[in-house]
Design a protein around this nucleic acid. Structure first.
Lengths: 258, 258
DNA sequence: ACAAAAGTGTTATCCTTACACCCATGT
DNA sequence: ACATGGGTGTAAGGATAACACTTTTGT
């Protein structure tokens, strides 16, 4: 492989050679105050937000690159990200090129500018996390790194809004097969919190009683002591996931296997 | 965008400039004699089979590239292919490089050889088709273009065997939501043929009576006259899909929407 | 006492599953 | 007559959805 021809220059985000023409973007979703939130970066150089993304090392697996990029850009370490789609439209960057902003970021090295402003195909990766367990550390390119409620997501750069949409579709599909709460909630939670999570993903109301019965019948929840938060009402039970039974359920398959 | 730097040389498969480092591979599945079959190409230059694949034009959407590549390499024109996964492991090409074979195909232009033997990330596309309606025309690189029963698929080049596996997984998931037969069967078919199709995708037996009831209840099949094939038994009905109702069912959603 | 939220129960309806029964046809 | 495969029916069990009832708690 002739590296001189394929890798033109080093982008700034990492001190190594990158694979040309392909990038990764991460849709990291969390749940807080009854709302789904997505992890976004605010650029230092210009007034735009974007998904945490980056480039792939020449000697790096695509899946591994996603994990590294997320860590470097946001501080979040995850052992596994799920690929959900690759975005390869010619005009996926839209009309705004951010060229002057990019120059202010990376300097005026023309090789580098050419490299970074070429066409990129980007593969989207996805994960659901517990917001409280995430210690956010924005990288040097970013002014801020924040959880943004889905309703408040602005016009992101390139096709990042579409990426979020597709990630949510994928989540919806998995919701039918997987008890998703284990990654998004605290270790202890009430049935109401779990229900709010499902409702905000599905975008619809669910009957309270039926939801409770359905979840309990899965036999992956352990009921703990009651929690008295001091409302004028009965105290709700706390639950935690029975991780052993949860794993067994996963291994048994997602419903379409058998 | 500086094309001189990004596009090094022209590969042979098409007379235009290609996007570097990214390819497309198509998993096209059909159904014949009660078996799922996959469309494969046998190389002229060496004794290996592979999925129909190719490169992406510099000014071509990824999705469009897949459609064009399939047409050029196999003769099959489809209006739509579904993306299912991108394969980006560093060593996805495996140990065999086929370098000498590639040279015999494309000549000894070192730029071209470098271009073609670099690392490629490949996006897999998927479709289900009616074998009888496909007029196979192998391209100049291929000796043959054939439907191969899944059980008879040999060791394909690179990670193509894994690609087929992942495509089948995706199909299984969709089977729960979509009445898939419309693309795979003849316009007229018996309930038994439809059942054999489902069984071969799911890899399990389905109760005959229950399957019939379930399919009829979907209300997308039109019962036609009986077909007497001359067996020592009752003649089965023929069915065709009610395409209007079928489309309505699709629009209504796949089950996870509501 | 009352409202609010949590836990549980009831009922009708639908779907799934396993299996049985009858029908048509060629040998 | 009988085996073979095709169409339909039945009964049990499970899942779902709508809704009602009871319990706990602060005001």
């Amino acid at each position: 492989m002739n590296q001189k021809e394929v890798t033109i220059a080093k982008p700034v985000m990492l001190d190594k050679n990158f694979f040309s023409g392909h990038s990764v973007d991460c849709v990291i979703l969390g749940f807080e105050q009854g709302e789904i939130k997505v992890l976004l970066l605010k650029w230092k150089a210009f007034e735009k937000w974007s998904l945490p993304g980056g480039f792939i090392g020449n000697d790096e697996d695509l899946d591994k690159a996603a994990i590294r990029i997320l860590q470097e850009r946001t501080g979040i370490s995850l052992p596994f990200l799920e690929q959900f789609h690759s975005f390869g439209d010619v005009n996926r960057k839209g009309k705004e090129s951010f060229l002057s902003e990019i120059k202010s970021l990376i300097g005026h090295d023309s090789n580098l500018i050419n490299w970074i402003s070429q066409r990129f195909i980007s593969t989207g990766y996805l994960s659901l996390v517990n917001i409280k367990k995430c210690n956010l550390v924005p990288d040097e390119l970013s002014e801020r790194c924040e959880w943004v409620s889905l309703n408040n997501v602005s016009n992101l750069i390139y096709d990042h809004n579409e990426m979020i949409k597709m990630a949510l579709q994928k989540i919806k599909m998995q919701l039918n097969y997987l008890p998703i709460g284990i990654t998004l909630l605290d270790s202890k939670f009430t049935m109401k919190e779990l229900q709010l999570l499902y409702q905000s993903i599905l975008g619809k109301e669910i009957d309270r009683g039926n939801f409770q019965k359905k979840m309990l019948k899965l036999d992956i929840l352990i009921r703990l002591e009651k929690q008295n938060l001091g409302g004028a009402h009965k105290a709700p039970y706390l639950y935690k996931f029975d991780k052993l039974k949860y794993k067994k359920l996963l291994k048994k398959g997602f419903g379409y296997i058998n």
